[in-house]
Design a protein around this nucleic acid. Structure first.
Length: 649
RNA sequence: GGGCCCGUAGCCUAGUCUGGAUUAAGGCGCUGGCCUUCGGAGCCGGAGACCGGGGGUUCAAAUCCCCUCGGGCCCGCCA
């Protein structure tokens, strides 16, 4: 017998028999669903019902007595995976599985489905776009932003394994002032060939240029404020100026040559602020010169990103350029349509979208999880100079995505909750209720450095590349220490997937809604509760199978009587449930946890009992089959979070 | 001023959506063992939290509701 979800078979049997007994005993009572829990201790069986506590009130009978009566009513002739049912505690009904049968079912099933084990397919397969990463092409991807591709990619893998058609999109946000800032600096330098990794090179130019242009602007603002003698404004500007000045002096120390050169060139410009704005306007209008230079710097950054992300095994199906959306008039069309609704109004030269009014008139607040008293801020759609803003373009982008997919998941930091909310409301205003309902903002919390947050504008960040390099370097040291006899090439190969695995695991493991303070030992953990630990467990399992060099011909699963063996079997059996939950709730961290727990149990097993040399042969065979099943499930979990499952390491 | 997220042992984290069992689960660090029949990136044990605080709902609360404190984020003609 095999099953794609062994534990579900057992659960169903328990539910049915309990349901039947309940029906027999109390035909008049309706219980909506018979939820069963996993007991805290295997002594209490594998599944338990606390139904009697609820029932006790309705039938005025004590829970323990009720439990006893229910159990007596159970139809034992229908038991297959159930071995026995006992009343326990203050009124629990505990179901104990027939472990011999259940072990056989589980191990056979895992080995039968192999690479597909656990990946229960959805009843309704959808076309889903997962937009993730989308780091602005201005500077290298830093470690705070790296949480995004790690989560986004894991989500895409989960949904794909669930049977959906998943498209991974990268939104190249090349429209906007910052791109113009970078292009401006790059042009001033005479469009040099990048030294080193192109995104890192661009990052330096961007940060220095941005700070210098900004300081220039603030100084002018300061003069203006002084003549207007607005003290509040003056202190505010001075505060910002101080911050930038200290950032600038840091940059001067870090990149002296580039800094001097840019300082010199920008100084020669009367109004850098205006030059940047002109470039920005030109780009939006599709001006060739602006296009050429901004495209160039964006492409250079993306070249670096592709390199970085492919190292981490993250790939995309589509790179969507914001500029193309704009030039193709899709932004204009979406805007025109929105203008025709009753929710767009001009004020002070700009065009505003009244999200609050839409939320009220469409009765959206409850649905969107907002309090009735909360007033949704309005959204500026068009600047007074006629150019659009990011959220405006994002509306067009959402419409474009929904032409291609039924569901859209945007992996975006939670600091963008408001614009994402406004986007949803705008879709409602346009009459696309269906789109709005199928738009998911997958929000994750910030990664900060101890003491301050990362800032690309001031250059205070740790790049994803640095982190990967360091992790791989550390992994190499470990490999060299543990397996000095390996050839260099092999050592490097291992160091690569171990280091990368450690980084991926560290970023996926934590609940996305929790804020994370970046520390090196968070990602450089190679011990228990890390990717290397799980990878090692997998390699160990492979090693046993290799050494055994035989198929388990006659496994006697009823001989797997050790407590740890049963725990492993229950864990293997529950993997499909964990997978479904992780895929439905978009929680890749559940997979990471599961993998670690399984590896943990496997190592305990490994140390406790022999496999190859176990006697009799039927027991050895059963254990071999168990090891094989563990290996497969570990590999499946690692694949889900994009980590290599090695045969050796 | 308003809104959202987070708050679990010295540190990091799981569990919170869907409330359940006398022992709240792991890791790091501290500490005592296993100097290893299949790879020690390992295993076994010990000390350490009453789940930020207070109220409430319930037979039952880390979990649900209200209040409160602490940390972060957002409320821009930036993205």
């Amino acid at each position: 017998m095999i099953s794609e979800n062994p534990f579900a078979e057992f659960r169903l049997e328990c539910q049915n028999s309990l349901g039947d007994a309940l029906q027999k005993l109390f035909p008049e009572i309706q219980i909506a669903r018979l939820a069963l829990e996993k007991p805290p201790n295997p002594e209490f069986g594998q599944l338990a019902s606390s139904l009697c506590f609820e029932l006790a009130k309705q039938v005025s009978e004590k829970p323990p007595a009720l439990a006893k009566r229910l159990i007596e009513t159970l139809d034992r002739s229908k038991f297959s995976l159930i071995e026995r049912v006992v009343a326990a505690g203050k009124g629990y009904v505990n179901f104990h599985a027939n472990l011999a049968l259940f072990s056989a079912l589980t191990i056979d099933s895992v080995r039968h489905f192999d690479t597909e084990y656990g990946f229960i397919k959805t009843a309704k397969s959808l076309k889903i776009i997962v937009e993730h990463t989308s780091v602005n092409p201005l500077h290298p991807i830093h470690i705070g932003q790296a949480r995004n591709p790690m989560l986004g990619d894991a989500i895409a893998r989960l949904l794909k394994s669930r049977g959906h058609n998943v498209y991974r999109h990268y939104y190249v946000d090349d429209v906007g002032r910052q791109s113009a800032v970078l292009a401006y600096g790059y042009e001033k330098l005479g469009k040099p060939k990048p030294e080193g990794k192109p995104d890192h090179f661009m990052g330096k130019i961007y940060t220095i240029t941005s700070c210098l242009v900004e300081i220039n602007r603030l100084k002018k603002d300061l003069e203006r404020a002084k003549t207007a003698s607005s003290t509040e404004e003056i202190t505010e500007i001075n505060r910002e100026l101080d911050d930038l000045m200290s950032a600038v002096s840091e940059l001067n120390v870090r990149f002296p040559e580039l800094f001097e050169e840019l300082l010199e060139k920008i100084r020669g410009d009367k109004d850098p602020e205006n030059a940047v704005n002109e470039l920005n306007r030109g780009y939006e209008a599709g001006d060739e010169k602006a296009k050429q230079i901004i495209r160039k710097v964006s492409e250079l950054c993306l070249q670096g990103f592709r390199n970085t992300l492919s190292r981490a095994e993250v790939f995309y199906d589509s790179w969507d350029w914001e500029s193309e959306l704009m030039w193709s008039s899709q932004v204009r069309k979406a805007l025109d349509k929105l203008k025709r609704t009753a929710y767009v109004f001009p004020i002070g030269g700009v065009l505003e979208f009244n999200a609050e009014k839409v939320a009220q008139e469409f009765g959206l607040k409850k649905k969107l999880g907002l309090r009735e008293s909360y007033e949704v801020p309005s959204l500026t759609l068009v600047r007074s100079d006629g150019t659009t803003l990011y959220p405006t373009r994002d509306i067009a982008y959402a419409l474009w995505k929904f032409e291609k997919a039924e569901k859209v998941i945007n992996v975006i930091g939670m600091e963008q909750k408001l614009p994402q909310l406004q986007l949803k409301i705008a879709l409602h205003a346009l009459g696309y209720d269906n789109y709005a309902d199928n738009l998911i903002h997958f929000a994750y919390n910030l990664v900060s450095l101890p003491g301050h947050k990362m800032s690309s504008r001031t250059g205070r960040y740790i790049t994803f590349d640095e982190v990967m390099d360091e992790a791989v370097k550390r992994a190499y040291e470990e490999v060299s220490k543990r397996s000095p006899q390996l050839p260099e090439e092999e050592k490097h190969k291992i160091a690569d997937f171990v280091g990368m695995g450690a980084v991926r695991y560290a970023l996926v493991e934590v609940d996305p809604s929790k804020p994370v303070v970046f520390t090196w030992d968070r990602v450089l953990n190679f011990e228990t509760n890390s990717a290397p630990y799980i990878q090692y467990s997998h390699a160990r399992a492979c090693s046993i199978l290799r050494k055994a060099a035989r198929e388990p011909e006659k496994p006697a699963f009823n001989l797997l009587k050790e407590k740890i063996e049963r725990e492993i079997i229950m864990t293997l059996a529950s993997f499909p449930d964990t997978f479904v939950e992780a895929a439905e709730l978009l929680k890749p961290n559940l997979i990471a946890d599961f993998a670690n727990a399984l590896a943990d149990k496997f190592n305990t097993f490994y140390n406790a009992v022999p496999v190859i040399k176990a006697k009799p042969q039927e027991l050895s065979d059963a254990r071999l089959a168990l090891v094989d099943a563990v290996k497969m499930v570990l590999r499946n979990t690692l694949n889900l979070i994009g980590i290599v499952a090695p045969e050796r390491m």
